[in-house]
Write a protein that binds this DNA or RNA. Structure first.
Length: 296
DNA sequence: AACGCGCCCTGTCCGC
DNA sequence: TGCGGACAGGGCGCGT
């Protein structure tokens, strides 16, 4: 569910209250949110006493950046582990992917969200705990040292709101694939951040049919698609994201973009541009929405 | 190699 | 009121 605008909203919400604070403890209540090989005790040991240097976003992922540990933080029993813990004096990153129903809520002394499925809790030195809630547990935590982060990051595609996402770059990328453009947009290895909602919305704005082969798009079309993606993502960020059901921002509040969606979820309702009934289709086992008159 | 599909999991809604 | 089926914003791993 959370696509780029939702993740960006959460990151902006929680950054100021987390940066500079220090982790006292990480409690993982539902270990199945941890990436393969990562265990609750290992995550706790790796992050305990670390200072949060920054909170950023890469695609649909939240990235908590931790400073390297200073020697003074490792005492007693921990000292015996240090020869095996090669990451102790390296910066670490915790990548959090929210899946469909993940929520990351900071300052939750008075949580406005109903957090009935808390999967992890970060106890902090100064701020109130950072809570991770995830009903379906499709979310994932990955712990990265600089080496594994470099590899992981390099496998993600272009950020659509950054300068490198030009019309030329998009046309070059789409020309190499014959998959339907809607499926193409969901693949995070090419362009990041666009999910099921904003794929339908961007294609409607660009006047492009979701089932068109990616490599059939002419340059004027990829140019329009590039503009449409950027516009819809920026507008959705301004509205603090789309809450259909589960999404909440970093304070546990809903986003307001649902009322501004033009095609997603509007099957059989009139196209806002021409009045034709919006159609629902299925690609890759997932719904998409389009206007049969406006999109070709 | 690229692509389509099933699956991970829980909750909600709809028709009968 | 109960029950089965469809569906939900994501992404991985599999087979072809």
């Amino acid at each position: 569910m959370p696509e780029l605008p939702e993740v960006e909203t959460i990151v902006r919400d929680i950054r100021d209250r987390l940066v500079g604070d220090r982790v006292l403890a990480v409690e993982v209540i539902r270990p199945d949110i941890l990436a393969a090989g990562l265990k609750p005790a290992g995550l706790h040991r790796a992050l305990r006493a670390r200072r949060i240097e920054n909170v950023t976003r890469r695609g649909k992922n939240i990235v908590l950046e931790f400073a390297e540990c200073t020697g003074a933080q490792h005492t007693g029993a921990q000292h015996a582990d240090r020869s095996r813990d090669t990451s102790a004096d390296e910066p670490l990153r915790l990548l959090i992917n929210l899946g469909m129903t993940g929520r990351l809520v900071a300052g939750a002394e008075h949580p406005k969200a109903d957090l009935h499925h808390i999967a992890a809790r970060f106890r902090l030195e100064t701020a109130a705990p950072l809570l991770y809630d995830d009903t379906r547990r499709f979310g994932r935590f990955e712990l990265h040292d600089p080496g594994s982060w470099k590899k992981r990051e390099s496998e993600l595609g272009i950020e659509p709101l950054e300068a490198g996402f030009t019309a030329e770059a998009l046309h070059l990328l789409t020309s190499r694939s014959r998959t339907p453009i809607r499926n193409w947009l969901l693949d995070q290895r090419r362009v990041v951040g666009v999910g099921n909602i904003y794929a339908s919305e961007a294609l409607f704005r660009a006047g492009i049919h979701p089932e068109r082969a990616a490599n059939s798009l002419e340059e004027p079309e990829t140019g329009r698609l590039r503009e449409s993606i950027r516009a819809v993502l920026a507008e959705a960020i301004r509205a603090r994201g789309t809450t259909l059901r589960d999404y909440r921002d970093g304070q546990g509040e809903i986003g307001e973009f649902a009322g501004l969606l033009r095609v997603y979820g509007r099957e059989n309702e009139p196209c806002l541009r021409c009045g034709t009934s919006i159609e629902r289709g299925v690609l890759g086992n997932r719904s998409h929405f389009h206007c049969p008159t406006c999109q070709h």
